[in-house]
Computed example of a mutant assay.
Amino acid sequence: MNRAWAAFKAHPYIGNVLGYTALFASADLIQQSVLGGKPAAGSASAGIDWRQTARVATVGFCFHANFNYHWLRWLERMLPGGGVRVVAGKVVLDQLIGAPLTISAFYVGLSVLEHKDDPLEDWRQKFWTSYKAGVVYWSTMQAVNFTLVPPVARTAFLGVIALTFTVFLCHLKQHHT
């Protein structure tokens, strides 16, 4: 385990981005398996739409993992430390700037990859529901992240806690209108 942690600390970008992406894609698999995601018409598998999971992984890798890695590093540079006021400041900035960007990238990114005629349709219908739920969930989770997790591992930890919220987003994307 010490060797794995040393490798992670030596290459934090790679470890964080790949770990986050894997967790992001896993959220879609959980949504489809447990919550009954609807398979696409003509999908080879009756239970899992692997193309959908690949699209979620693509959005996770191309935007979410990279954005969160750099965003968390920027927050730490702008507001170093872990005192109550500093953590509160990081959480507020995260909810006012980071959350709208990541939720928007999720809906718009998937719609673009799905070749939808109106890539903003899902965003218009589901953004506020997602954002309101996210403020409650993420404010608590990011406070834990900024207080207890060392900066080098924050994106990976974010991936772990994002698993639950991404299951929610995938489910909302597939079922809620």
Rank of each mutant, 00 (worst) to 15 (best):
V144P: 09
S26D: 09
A133S: 14
V59P: 01
W74K: 11
D94F: 09
D117T: 15
W71K: 06
L72K: 07
L35C: 09
V34A: 10
A22V: 14
T140W: 13
P119C: 00
Q174F: 11
K9H: 13
F67Y: 14
A40E: 06
T102P: 04
D117S: 15
V152C: 03
Q52W: 14
I97V: 15
H70E: 01
A153H: 06
S111M: 00
Y107Q: 05
T166F: 07
G89A: 08
P39T: 01
T164L: 08
C62D: 05
D122Y: 03
L29Y: 11
N16Y: 09
V144N: 00
A65V: 06
S104D: 04
A105L: 13
I103H: 04
A22T: 13
S45Y: 07
M141R: 07
W128S: 10
Y20K: 13
A153L: 06
R51F: 11
P39M: 06
T58N: 02
S33D: 02
T177I: 05
T129I: 10
V112G: 06
R51K: 15
G47R: 15
Y20E: 07
D117K: 15
T58R: 04
E114I: 07
W123S: 00
G98E: 05
K90N: 00
V87C: 09
P150Y: 03
T166R: 02
G83C: 09
G36V: 01
T129F: 03
T166C: 09
W138M: 08
R73N: 14
G134C: 02
G82Q: 14
D118F: 00
V144R: 07
L18N: 03
Y69D: 07
D122F: 01
G89Q: 05
V144E: 04
L72C: 01
D118Q: 10
R73T: 14
F61H: 12
A54R: 10
H64K: 02
G60P: 00
I161M: 12
R154S: 11
L93N: 13
V144A: 14
